[in-house]
Design a protein around this nucleic acid. Structure first.
Lengths: 137, 137
DNA sequence: CCACTAGCTTACTCAAAAGTGGGTACTTAC
DNA sequence: GTAAGTACCCACTTTTGAGTAAGCTAGTGG
């Protein structure tokens, strides 16, 4: 059988596999998960406005626990979105800022956050309509 | 910055409380959570490209279970982002599309998804740097 | 001597998210 | 007659996200 040998055409292609979020095991999934995570969005948006210290971020982002903020910031730092600057002073002082890469994402999630804030009423109205229609059946 | 322009012009404004995602109990948090949820992002992005049927969406979005897709679509429908059109035929046929409101958000999450796909390599490189620096200590 | 500070880490715990496997009702294809 | 497709729902279990509370560092103020 002429077992169709597909993709034997270019033997020395630099394997620039195109990322695709719709593929289950694509690394872009994980990155998107970090960026769009519950606290990731808010941290990025907050840092877009200004460089901030750990406890400043904690105060700005209502409801984050220390644990989750630390965890979130570490993930974002590892992904190259956030820069962490620790000053060896007592008491400790750590400043978080966005990298150029982080600034790009942050602008997008910031816009998303603002958009959401501006359309809360429409969504709330839609929910009422939906719930009413469902209850009527 | 446009967050703080409270209307002080009209004294009898119906107190349109300004939404703030940084406040723990603001409804905008929940909306943002739906939009930025694991499958919410992908569903919105997929629907921006075309109206799709349930099982089409399942095929497009790699790795979603039926349960999660149904759940996600219901949340998005309730929030007024997605329109569900069910045709009473056999076998069942249900088409999902974006509402005008949904199209606005979808454009943003679509851009985010696309951006992520395009910067996977930079993030992966950042992770290696981070991990190497950490292992060295 | 003790508390207090900032920025974490660790352990414990629980609730929510998500996966698994089943069922439904009907039809067409094999 | 049995499987597959269609768009779900329901019950059950596993996995993960996230909160709470504690400990840690090392120096400063009381």
């Amino acid at each position: 059988m002429s077992v169709s040998n597909q993709a034997q055409r270019q033997p020395r292609e630099p394997v620039t596999t195109v990322a695709d979020v719709n593929t289950a095991d694509c690394p872009s999934r994980g990155i998107l998960d970090h960026v769009t995570s519950r606290w990731g969005v808010l941290a990025l948006a907050a840092l877009l406005e200004d460089t901030r210290r750990f406890s400043e971020l904690r105060r700005v982002i209502g409801g984050v626990s220390e644990k989750m903020l630390a965890q979130t910031l570490q993930a974002l730092e590892r992904d190259g979105f956030v820069h962490r600057e620790a000053y060896p002073v007592i008491p400790p002082r750590v400043e978080y800022s966005l990298t150029p890469l982080g600034t790009e994402v942050a602008r997008q999630v910031w816009a998303l956050a603002r958009w959401t804030e501006g359309h809360v009423h429409e969504v709330l109205a839609a929910r009422e309509t939906y719930d009413a229609a469902k209850a009527a059946r």
